[in-house]
């Protein structure tokens, strides 16, 4: 239901159970975080297809690769930060280089980490995963898209990094919505000559809210949601640059290496235009209320709207 608040991690856990009959080769590996990442639902429903790996992410990735080499489709579900950084070499060599169909659920992606602070926030995972050849990166916006992308990821022949967040987020898609791999989704058409907001994951609901604030002021902003960060929908990015002329990117991630960086890399070569990247600056997160931290960095509807407004007025992110 639109606007209903649901945690993507829960939608992922439910989707695994829902799609288990469809994919008899699917198994789940858990480095002792299943009650957090919600694969405990799968554990309860399919205990014989659930492997408790203990607190050992590196081994879990290798085991998943071995299972995948024998025809299984393993999901390794863990905190995003401990997949993308602690188990990076295993993901790189045993998964990305082999191209085996190991599926990674980077749960607790971005900031919302249960007030976990610097060690548990995962604001570098998109950068790290983007650098791996052959890795598909999915960043669903809400529970509807998380469910659909869980199925989509399981169906894909190669490795996938699905990023799910911990906190409840508003539902922005109706139940019939089906994401297309590698294609951005238009959330607000906007009008030519105004700003485009390009967002990923849970930031897309905030981008829409920002666009609606701006629409009331007469600024018609295009909003594109990137449920796939890699492969990036370069056509949609370039079209936004050509048609809108100015772009704001918004991500629950560091501004280094994530969606904003991917957009800038593409535009620098294909359609240069003014871009403002909203995300976390080059700092570690700290403990505290998620909402306050997001707001500190302008990652709420008001902050996004303000950035778009300044850009539309021809000014930069600081108003200069």
């Amino acid at each position: 239901m639109i606007d209903e608040m649901v945690a993507p991690r829960l939608a992922f856990g439910k989707a695994l159970v829902e799609f288990a009959p469809l994919f008899p080769e699917m198994v789940v590996l858990d480095p002792d975080v299943c009650t957090s990442t919600q694969t405990s639902l799968f554990r309860a429903a399919y205990p014989h297809r659930f492997y408790e790996m203990g607190i050992a992410e590196a081994n879990a990735i290798g085991v998943a690769a071995g299972l995948a080499s024998c025809g299984y489709i393993p999901w390794v579900s863990a905190f995003a930060v401990f997949l993308a950084t602690r188990a990076l070499d295993q993901i790189r060599v045993s998964v990305a280089h082999t191209g085996l169909p190991v599926k990674l659920n980077g749960s607790y992606g971005g900031l919302p980490s249960g007030r976990g602070g610097a060690t548990h926030s995962s604001i570098e995972d998109l950068a790290v995963m983007r650098a791996l050849p052959g890795m598909t990166i999915l960043t669903p916006a809400d529970s509807v898209e998380t469910r659909a992308m869980t199925e989509l990821a399981t169906r894909l022949p190669g490795p996938v990094y699905l990023r799910t967040v911990r906190c409840e987020v508003p539902t922005i898609f109706d139940a019939a919505y089906r994401p297309v791999l590698g294609k951005a989704t238009v959330l607000r058409k906007g009008s030519s000559g105004d700003v485009a907001i390009l967002s990923e994951g849970m930031m897309s609901a905030r981008a829409v809210a920002a666009a609606d604030l701006l629409a009331a002021e007469g600024l018609k902003v295009r909003v594109l949601h990137f449920g796939t960060v890699k492969p990036l929908d370069g056509e949609a990015v370039a079209a936004a640059a050509r048609e809108c002329g100015r772009i704001v990117t918004v991500e629950n991630h560091s501004v280094i290496g994530g969606l904003g960086a991917a957009v800038c890399e593409l535009l620098a070569e294909e359609a240069p235009c003014r871009v403002v990247r909203l995300g976390f600056p080059d700092v570690f997160m700290e403990s505290g209320d998620d909402g306050l931290i997001f707001s500190r960095y302008g990652l709420d509807a008001c902050g996004i709207a303000a950035a778009a407004r300044r850009l539309a007025a021809g000014r930069g992110p600081t108003g200069a």
Partner: peptide
């Protein structure tokens, strides 16, 4: 299975042994 980064092979072997056990 591809190897080269030391320490990874036994984990992969466990995955294969689990596959044999499950199927």
């Amino acid at each position: 299975i591809s190897t080269g980064s030391l320490g990874q092979g036994l984990s992969c072997g466990i995955g294969m042994a689990l596959a044999a056990q499950a199927n």
